[in-house]
Design a binder for these strands. Structure first.
Length: 309
DNA sequence: TGGATTTGACCGTG
DNA sequence: CACGGTCAAATCCA
């Protein structure tokens, strides 16, 4: 019988995805136990924490599988294109210890695949802002018909944690000058910031925070009755190309996660949530001392919704 | 000295 | 073939 041989990086991604799913299952079990039984006195983990962890686990898994899929696609033509192709994800061979830092490395140049279907979001800000992630600049390019060069950044944890997030920053020609930041992909690295910190930061207009929003099922909604961290109101300000009757925004738009491109995950059609492209505003209030207002446009692609500010 | 940035070269895509 | 995204050696800097 033939056995499937996985490329090393795909094998690693598969292991990571399985690990993330196992984590998610564990957190779900904990949440289930919390919902069934009496809350443990002085428990250190709240249902809210577990919910965030579960969603983070799903998000990481999706990101891993998403990047694996594109890697797999890009490797097929690469391997058939050139035998002994040195292309390898992560460029780990830098520490191969060999002194072949000349031709072998030059052969590796251009071994990438342009992102065609990765998730992107674009933001326009009056100044350069800190979005809470560690970025490392890896390139700068003069763009045709653009007055200012475009700067390319990748996540600092690209190699140590395999984070595939990148962003491009370009100053616009408009007056006053604005910075257009385009994010590609999701952060799969561990973020040092806590959700609460990000929310607090978001009260500042210049903050570059963005959030992962998820629509809850009824079950999770019940579980959050006594933990109302969630935004409680989502309304559509105006729509593009859709009549008002075409949409219904679920009021239980929830959960806040790491900074980066804002993404809204739908729970599936059986929950009756229908979302249309358009511009939405979102007001979030909590039992704690802060609240936030957000507004942006929603683009949807299958079950993943991109929320651009 | 190690990590970050700069910058010219390389290469895939349209 | 032009353009844009990425690579990687050289350079900078704390």
């Amino acid at each position: 019988m033939e056995s499937i041989t996985w490329p090393e990086n795909l094998l690693n991604d598969r292991k990571k995805a399985i690990h993330e799913l196992l984590r998610g299952r564990e957190f779900t079990n904990q949440l289930g136990a919390m919902l069934r039984g009496p809350l443990p006195a002085g428990g250190s983990v709240s249902a809210e924490d577990l919910l965030v962890k579960i969603m983070g686990s799903f998000r990481n898994t999706i990101s891993i599988l998403d990047s694996s899929e594109s890697d797999e696609v890009s490797q097929i033509p690469a391997s058939s294109r050139r035998l002994d192709s040195p292309c390898r994800d992560g460029r780990k061979s830098e520490d191969s210890g060999q002194s072949s830092k000349t031709s072998a490395f030059k052969d590796r140049r251009g071994c990438y695949k342009r992102r065609k279907n990765s998730h992107t979001s674009t933001k326009l800000t009056p100044n350069l802002i800190d979005d809470g992630h560690a970025w490392r600049k890896y390139g700068q390019k003069v763009i045709l018909n653009a007055k200012h060069p475009r700067n390319y950044f990748r996540c600092t944890h690209k190699f140590d944690q395999g984070c595939q997030a990148t962003k491009q920053v370009q100053m616009t020609e408009a007056e006053p000058a604005m910075y257009k930041t385009t994010y590609h992909g999701f952060h799969t690295c561990k973020n040092p910031l806590k959700a609460s910190q990000i929310i607090l930061d978001s009260t500042h207009p210049a903050s570059d925070s963005s959030y992962l929003l998820c629509f809850n099922s009824d079950r999770i909604q019940k579980s959050s009755d006594h933990h109302s961290l969630y935004p409680h109101l989502v309304k559509q300000e105006h729509k593009q190309n859709f009549p008002m009757s075409d949409y219904l925004m679920s009021p239980d738009l929830t959960t806040i996660d790491s900074p980066g491109p804002m993404t809204v995950l739908s729970p599936g059609s059986d929950h009756g949530d229908v979302i249309s492209s358009g511009v939405y505003s979102c007001t979030a209030s909590t039992h704690s001392s802060f609240g936030m207002d957000m507004m942006g446009s929603v683009d949807f692609d299958d079950d993943v919704f991109q929320f651009d500010f």
